Simulated assay, not measured.
Amino acid sequence: MRWNLRMKAAENGIWKSTEMRRRLAEAGLEVSAGKMSALWTGTPTTIRLDDLDVICHVLDCSPTDLLIREPEKVAALRPEVRATADGVPSGDPGFVPRLGRNRTLPPA
């Protein structure tokens, strides 16, 4: 995920974190200078849903405008599986979870 707060703020004429902090305070969300700096300059590791709701209200946007999906990064994390000529994956399959009713019984 990519955090898009500064772009959405700029689209609303907010160019400085102090202005964003003032508008959040007017909407009822008191943000410390340190937390505002972290929200403004980087991607937060966590954010409270109530805080996200106020930010979206102030910027007149939705959470999907602030949190941009990056599917190419997810795809890069997947292990590469190559198929042989008969269509069967080659290499070590690793752990394959068994879901549903086809589970094996525990050892006796």
Rank of each mutant, 00 (worst) to 15 (best):
S90W: 06
L52C: 00
P97C: 13
K16W: 06
S37F: 11
A38P: 00
K8S: 04
R103T: 04
V96A: 15
R6A: 06
P44Q: 06
S17L: 11
N102L: 09
A76D: 07
W3M: 03
R98V: 15
G28C: 12
R2V: 00
R82A: 12
P79H: 15
P106V: 07
V88H: 07
V88C: 10
S37L: 12
D50F: 01
S17R: 14
R101S: 13
T41Y: 02
R69P: 12
A75I: 09
N4D: 04
S32G: 15
D50S: 09
L52K: 00
D51E: 15
W15M: 08
R48I: 02
L29G: 03
M1I: 05
E11W: 10
P106T: 07
N4A: 00
L52V: 00
R78D: 04
E80S: 13
L39M: 01
I55V: 10
L59S: 08
P79M: 13
G87C: 08
V54P: 05
E72R: 12
A27H: 08
G94P: 09
L105C: 11
R21D: 01
R78V: 06
E72Y: 08
H57C: 03
D92N: 14
I55Q: 07
A76S: 13
P71W: 02
T45D: 06
L39Y: 08
W40D: 08
D60C: 09
E11C: 07
P93H: 14
L77F: 04
E19H: 07
D86N: 13
D51G: 03
T41A: 03
L5A: 06
I55M: 15
L77G: 08
R69A: 08
A76N: 06
K73Q: 06
I68L: 03
V58F: 03
K8D: 01
D51L: 00
S62H: 10
T41M: 06
R101V: 10
K73G: 02
L5Y: 07
A75S: 13
A85C: 02
T46V: 14
R82T: 09
A9F: 01
T18G: 05
V58Y: 03
V31G: 04
E70C: 06
V81S: 05
I55L: 15
T41V: 00
A10K: 14
G100M: 15
L49K: 09
V88R: 12
R23N: 02
T46I: 12
G28S: 09
G13T: 13
E26V: 15
L67H: 09
R48W: 09
G34L: 10
D50M: 04
